[in-house]
Structure formats: structure tokens, C-alpha cells
């Protein structure tokens, strides 16, 4: 019975407009979804289960609103859904510590997560959790094989490398060539009824604190030209004005 855990995070829809009001982002009106790469992590976790047996637990850390992404994962086919109850914004140290101790508690043997979350863009959680657990990790993985031990394909200097990975391990998933399965009616019905197991966690104080959010600096209006012949002038400006070629 392989215990497979997939980490999922709720983030603003990537189409959403982000507004900063005062000095904080205001996400109150924003639609929230499962972070895009986490969909690949869920799919890979399910394929792992299909190949080797076992069960898949989807785990998130967040407030009650985050139950929605767990239900989404359930509708696609994970077996259990667990939320570490925490409303606060955490720094990477506090987040990873809470995730790592819960993963231990759950008896996780392999963990899949997204290569980066759509809000932070960080890509810190997978490798950080692996280090805390003393596990192997492989990041930005585009394909996973389950025959005869765990193998992954990930970018490597000048191409891709197929690697064997010691287990237990944390694998962070990029969009590979795999198609993610969509929920079917039965899955959606099961998800409706499914219970989220809510866990309290000891949360460490954060040492990195958010000072402010701001809008990206506005770009000064660029120069614009009509007609293909202008490409010659633009090429010259790239050399003489921008100094980039």
C-alpha cells in the first residue's frame, strides 16, 4: 500500500486581475482555483496509484475556503482529502515545517506537488519539504515512470535527463506531455459528500514578513512604427539605444 500524497494549493485564477489596495493585494473579488501545475501533480499521483496500488491523499494548508481545491482533487479521483487549518500567510520556513510534519504523520512515502504556485511563483515548497524530511527530490519533472523504481525526466544542461530517484522522494511537476483527467459525474457526486479531514498544526513564527504589495512599475510608453520596413530602424535602436545586441 503505497501512501502517495499530492500537495495542492488554492490560488487566484490566472485570468484574474490583481488589484492592490492600500499596500496589500485585494483578492476578495477574485475567483480561486487549484494552482495550474498542481493539476499535473494530481494526475501523476493518480497514475502512480494506478501503476503500483496504494492510496492518494491530497493535502493543502489554508483556511476553510481552500476545501474547494481538495474537493476538486477528490472529484478527479484522489482517495482522501486533508487540510492543515491555517488562515495566516506563512513564510516558506513555517509553511514547509507544517507540511513536513503533517506528511510524516500521514505516513507519506512519495509526495507530488507543483513546480511552482501561480501566486508565489517560488518553486520552494517541494525541495524545501524534501530537505526537511531528509528525502530525495527532483524538480520541474515532465514525466514519471513507476516500473522498477521511480524514474523521472527533467530538464538538464542542454536537454533532458532521465534519472532514477531514491525513495522516499518529493517530485515537483511541470506540465509534461500527459493529459490530466477531468472529473466525471460520479466523481463530482463523491466529492460533494466527501469529508475534509481538518488538522490543526503547530505553526512556527515567520521570520520573513510582507512589508507591502505594489503594482509592477509602469513601463514608459514604447516607440511604435507602422510597416515592416521599420524593422531596420528598430534593429538599429536595439543596438544603439537599448544596447542589447
Amino acid at each position: 500500500m503505497t501512501k502517495i500524497v499530492v500537495l495542492v494549493k488554492q490560488v487566484p485564477d490566472t485570468n484574474a486581475k490583481i488589484v492592490v489596495s492600500g499596500d496589500r493585494v485585494d483578492l476578495s473579488a477574485v475567483k480561486k482555483v487549484m494552482s495550474p501545475y498542481d493539476e499535473f501533480a494530481v494526475e501523476t499521483a493518480l497514475r502512480h496509484r494506478d501503476a503500483s496500488g496504494g492510496e492518494v491523499i491530497a493535502l493543502t494548508l489554508g483556511g476553510a475556503g481552500a476545501d474547494k481545491v481538495l474537493k476538486d482533487a477528490k472529484a478527479i479521483g484522489v482517495d482522501h482529502i486533508v487540510r492543515i487549518d491555517c488562515e495566516q500567510e506563512l513564510d516558506s520556513n513555517a509553511l514547509q515545517s507544517a507540511l513536513a510534519s503533517t506528511l510524516q504523520e500521514l505516513g507519506a512515502e512519495i509526495v507530488y506537488c507543483g513546480k511552482s504556485a501561480a501566486d508565489t511563483g517560488a518553486g520552494s515548497t517541494g525541495p524545501g519539504v524534501a530537505e526537511r524530511l531528509g528525502w530525495a527530490s527532483a524538480s520541474n519533472v515532465i514525466s514519471v515512470g513507476f516500473d522498477g523504481g521511480l524514474t523521472v525526466v527533467a530538464p538538464s544542461d542542454g536537454g533532458n535527463a532521465r534519472m532514477s530517484v531514491n525513495t522516499p522522494a518529493v517530485i515537483t511537476c511541470d506540465k509534461g506531455d500527459i493529459k490530466v483527467r477531468k472529473p466525471n459525474v460520479k466523481g463530482i457526486m463523491q466529492a460533494k459528500k466527501a469529508q475534509v479531514e481538518v488538522k490543526a498544526a503547530a505553526i512556527q513564527p515567520s521570520s520573513v514578513t510582507i512589508v507591502a504589495h505594489s503594482m509592477p512599475p509602469a513601463k514608459p510608453a514604447g516607440k511604435s512604427y507602422e510597416g515592416g520596413a521599420a524593422a531596420a530602424e528598430v534593429a538599429n535602436l536595439l543596438r544603439d539605444e537599448a544596447n542589447v545586441i
Partner: peptide, 11 residues
Amino acid sequence: VYSGKAMQTVA
């Protein structure tokens, strides 16, 4: 952060 739609300053 947010795919470049905002900037975050931390201490």
C-alpha cells in the same frame, strides 16, 4: 508575485 501582476516586498 501573481505571475508578475504585482510586486511583493518582504523584510
